[in-house]
């Protein structure tokens, strides 16, 4: 088993003329909560799509849990895409039944525990949910999977403050499990999310400009939010 949850070696990906990732090399150790941080268009979502095999890089080598990304690794990856939605006619209970059937590693007990923690009403249909409720449902479906890698693309975007706090608590709660997953997380709500991070990768313009242990970065440079502001301006 690879020591690294994720590694990229000189990875490049362009969309037309726009270079989304430019010669990115990166190694993320297992068991960490990793902030993938950067302004819009920095390449965060592209990175996540490459890790889940949705996008193929033009050059470079990618390893997820020691293998090339694809359907085999995806069984072990819980991925929350940006702006994810659910079937509008499904209630929470329907969604959980669906997940139990189709999502590898899905753990129904964990799902119910998380639903309570996230204060979800299991009878509400996704179509009637607020943005925050639906986001909590999507997150719950990811976090209830016992898999070694969790990838969350903007899990807090467009969500009210109480829901954000619950989502973060939900993430902490799965980190306390005995087999804690590696979590990759992008967010603009850094003030709230940064105490969760124990590793951070800063991307701007498709390049990694800084990466390392969060406590070391705090000691050297200050808060993650401060680092990001410094790098962007």
């Amino acid at each position: 088993m690879s020591e690294m949850a994720v590694s990229l070696h000189h990875v490049t990906k362009s969309y037309g003329r726009k270079q989304a990732l430019a010669d990115v090399s990166l190694a993320i150790p297992r068991g960490r909560v990793v902030g993938i941080l950067g302004p819009n268009g920095a390449g965060k979502s592209t990175l996540f799509r490459i890790l889940t095999g949705l996008v193929r890089p033009e050059a470079g080598e990618v390893r997820v849990l020691g293998e090339s990304p694809g359907w085999r690794t995806n069984r072990q990856v819980a991925y929350l895409p940006d702006r994810a939605r659910w079937y509008p006619d499904h209630t929470v209970a329907d969604a959980l039944r669906w997940a139990e059937t189709f999502l590898p590693g899905f753990h129904l007990d964990t799902a119910h525990r998380l639903a309570a923690l996230l204060r979800m009403d299991e009878h509400v249909r996704a179509g009637q949910m607020s943005r925050g409720q639906e986001a909590r449902l999507m997150l719950l479906m990811c976090l209830a999977r016992r898999v070694p890698l969790v990838v969350l693309d903007e899990p807090l975007a467009g969500i009210d403050a109480p829901s954000r706090a619950r989502i973060l608590e939900g993430i902490v709660s799965v980190l306390s499990e005995e087999e804690r997953p590696t979590v990759l997380l992008s967010t603009h709500e850094l003030y709230e999310a940064e105490p969760l991070l124990d590793y951070a990768v800063f991307l701007t313009g498709g390049r990694v400009v800084l990466a390392g242990d969060a406590e070391t970065l705090r000691r050297q440079h200050g808060s993650m939010r401060h680092i990001l502001e410094t790098l962007v301006t």
Binding site: G31, R32, V33, A165, L168, E169, V172, S173, L175, S176, R180, E192, P195, L196, L197, D198, A214, E215
Partner: peptide, 15 residues
């Protein structure tokens, strides 16, 4: 417990 503390502080349990 580490879990309770981490959850209430919303801080990484490793920390």
């Amino acid at each position: 417990s580490v879990r309770e503390m981490a959850q209430s502080l919303r801080v990484n349990p490793n920390t």
